[in-house]
Design a protein around this nucleic acid. Sequence first.
DNA 1: CAAACTTATCGTCTTTTATACGCTAACTAT
DNA 2: ATAGTTAGCGTATAAAAGACGATAAGTTTG
Lengths: 244, 244
Amino acid sequence: MNQSLSVDCAVFGFNGKSLKVLLIERRYYKPDTRLDKLKLPGAMILDNETLPEAAYRILEEATGLRNVYLKQMDIFSDPKRVAGEELEWINRYHGIQTDRVVTVGYYALVKLDSRTITYTTAKGAQWVDVDSIQRLAMDHKAILSAALTVLCREMLQSPVAFELLPRKFTIRALQNLYSAVLGIDIDNRNFRKKILASGFLTPTAEKEQGVAHKPAQYYTFNKNAYKKALKDKLKLGFINNWRY
Amino acid sequence: MNQSLSVDCAVFGFNGKSLKVLLIERRYYKPDTRLDKLKLPGAMILDNETLPEAAYRILEEATGLRNVYLKQMDIFSDPKRVAGEELEWINRYHGIQTDRVVTVGYYALVKLDSRTITYTTAKGAQWVDVDSIQRLAMDHKAILSAALTVLCREMLQSPVAFELLPRKFTIRALQNLYSAVLGIDIDNRNFRKKILASGFLTPTAEKEQGVAHKPAQYYTFNKNAYKKALKDKLKLGFINNWRY
DNA sequence: CAAACTTATCGTCTTTTATACGCTAACTAT
DNA sequence: ATAGTTAGCGTATAAAAGACGATAAGTTTG
């Protein structure tokens, strides 16, 4: 039996309001089949590359971006996860002959801006609201769901949120991101206090401009402060913590 | 090019003093080669099984145990992670012809007791002190290190510690486990307070017997209380927590 | 048998962190 | 000028963390 190893990436972006994921239309797609059109970016692993290398390659092909936050998330190894028409499509698309495809799911976090959006749409990809997605090709909906679960967990455990924000951001933007991803309301006054007390934010000289309210300070994420704090503390996180 | 997918398991146990890992001597081992003798339990994935199924199968073969805590941890996909003599050994041992083996690392937690130890040693496996391990076959030392890192993280984030303890245990045993794995000193009075306040421990009717000091109460882990607490709380764990 | 030793268990005090929420500041839109 | 909005500061209370004193209940030692 012939088995193949592939990588699929759930690429997330945040536009200030809602969480987006990058989807691409699959080629050789025949509208008369029952196959879904949209899929996550992914590809077969090449002979001479590691999985992370494959993931970075796929990401660059899909977004034109390097230096993106990327992390392995789960493996989807059901022998029948692609079969029948889906398996035929894969063999035709890749020009191979395989009976089984085990795929490794990665999730990526991208700083959405006009440049990023231009790049990705030029390559035939589209940013879709995560909440609006009903079905995807193959088992990609399940892969996306797994990625979302991991994202929620990571957002609470490590400062990955900053990977979704521009280099300079307001505390409100950070709060909105947490609100959107976790689906909760957060008291702005306590959130500021907590996040500022952490010492992970460095104020910049800039402020918001042209907003219909008091302009907010822009901050940057201080990675060094975070790394320093990591060394100093061991956290017994499963017992006690933050309620919103 | 011919590639294979395998699973390797780092199986941990705790004897009350130190953390142990289950190692097996590889067969077809020729002492005159430079290959290391001890390896982690592992095997190639079968055509019709998923990765978790393969991991459980390997675990049962190595320990004779079912219902063991088992979790996927990382993937080792360097194209050259096994090559040369090591690759020859794999092909001879499995009776296959492969050029590349990608392996998925699992880690397992086992409740060490006389029965477990008898089972495993009967099957040619041995429990080795984690700290004493210098070298292992192939890249298994790296896999073990990765598993240890994940174990430390998980011990702080979720109640996996109880998977390493017998059903009934003393608070001191739990504390010793944390001390040993994390390599820290913990104040017993505050540890008890914290762990009891969590509400995750249920006292049993039993006490220690024959110890040279005041006998301690035995407790069991209350899984339901933990699950209930999980639902109620969202934790922003990366900012603040426990210092020891 | 008494004293020494060891760990269990309870309790107190102080400091830090979480959470609720009142209030003013600074900007735009009308 | 006024209304609407979010920024940003502050206060008060409750909860949790962390340091550490003291007593209890066993075994081991002399």
